[in-house]
Amino acid sequence: MSIAIGCALEPAIPFAFAHELIRQRKRDLTLIGPISDILFDQLIGAGCVARVEAAWVGNVSAGLGHCYRRALEQGEPRRIEVRDHSNFSIGQALLAGAIGAQYIATKTLLGSDIARTNPTFKESTSPFDGSKELLVPAITPDLAVLACQVADRDGSAELQGPWGVSYEAALAAKSAIVLAEIVPAEIVVRTPNRAIVPATKVVAVVHEPGACHPSSLSRMYQRDHEFFHEYHRATRTALGFDRWIAEWVTGVPDRAAYLRKLGPRWDALDARVKFAPTTEPN
């Protein structure tokens, strides 16, 4: 199964979903996304992943991803296939998927070894002016997983803050799952132009407060920068990673327990006080 996740880049990464994938021992996943920070590293380390199609796999705060390194350098816990992209090329691949195009022709990556080593790309010449171009074929994930601030029960989801390639990923995917901080019982005002994915594509809306920690969610909570460094230090060895997962993922039954475990540290990341509107138009 192929899953596009973490498509807003550094913010709004659905860690809660990834942790549940680990608890349910999902295997042989293909992960798709530009930069999904340590979410990809965790799924790789937990043995859930067969292939990664991404522009960047690591730890945005601390640099290298230890699990990604172990998988590629030592085949631990298993070998994974990598299809290298840049941010632009994966965005274009998802856009092609979203609009039903077989591929998109681009000028990026010409001369990069990424164009040579990703077996899905083809170099070509433009039929219009004979110039060189790279053909980036469509990516159509089985599932796109998005986190957002507010969604209604029908799946109409509003993501404030950077979208990255979330919109393209959601449209390219066969179906989408939305994790929302707030799911109102009643829809007060629907603003369809703000919804990141048509509700018809959404197969599940999950009310999951704090779903994106340690990444940030605009106007809800700040990035827990130190948490990324702690993860980096704790996972230098495979044993250290196993201990980290046992503490933060398999050692907690769900997200609510995870947030309780964070304790006052979680409260300190709250951004709503700062952004609380005095009057809310809708």
């Binding site: 991404a54 941010n87 000028k107």
Partner: peptide, 15 residues
């Protein structure tokens, strides 16, 4: 050593 990858770097360098 597996480094993280391009991110947007290769796009900036290309374009």
């Amino acid at each position: 050593v597996a480094l993280p990858g391009s991110g947007g770097g290769a796009d900036i360098a290309s374009l």
